[in-house]
Amino acid sequence: MTIFEGRGLTVRYGAHVALDGVDIALEPGVVHGVIGPNGAGKSTFIDALSGRKRPSSGTVTFEGVDITRRSVRWRRRKGLSRSFQRTSVFGAMTVGDQLEMVARRNNEEDLGEIVRTLGLEGILDRVCAEIAYGTQRSVDLAIALIGRPKVVLLDEPCAGLVHDESVRMLQHVRDVCKERDVAALLVEHDVEGVFRTCDVITVLDLGKLLATGTPDDVRADENVIRAYLGSAA
């Protein structure tokens, strides 16, 4: 049962085609990973899906409705949220203030649960810019999860995290996705982490879709091995 779908998404920067006719379909309760080497178009892809970048062609549909031209604000109100590769929090505000602010807007009734799941209880009255980077990434994720969104697009949530933090972060993502029946898209650099966390994986290379399938299928895919994973995988 597809809830969120991108079809033939293409993004051009002048003559350069950053994303070339990529399709994707997300289902509730399924963690869908997107991997690919540097410059594969992963960030462009998530920008096109989330409305940050308007695709040159192709459509984005949510619950069967074409939302390609809808504003990011509209999307968030309808249950589509995203996080950012470069930590995007409200630096000068306390963690508690900013979570409450977002919760107020998105009718979140149980902010406490998100705070507990991500282990943010102890730092609610700390100014966000002053807390550890890894914790800021958790705040970033919390902001995206507030209001029970139906679809969450996560742009490298583990960027800049050390190994242990990274493992914990991906576990959180998987737990939240399963518990809340969220359709999650996980763009990630950490290939092993993606194979461990995701139910479905899409591989991009040079802006094109290389393969889509279960982790086992993708691992065995000849194109993927040749272009990206190498024989070691």
């Binding site: 940050r52 995007s88 630096g91 602010m101 977002v102």
Partner: peptide, 12 residues
């Protein structure tokens, strides 16, 4: 003031 883009992505 702190993060205009994230505000929009938070529905504001």
């Amino acid at each position: 003031r702190e993060n205009e883009e994230r505000m929009r992505f938070s529905g504001y």
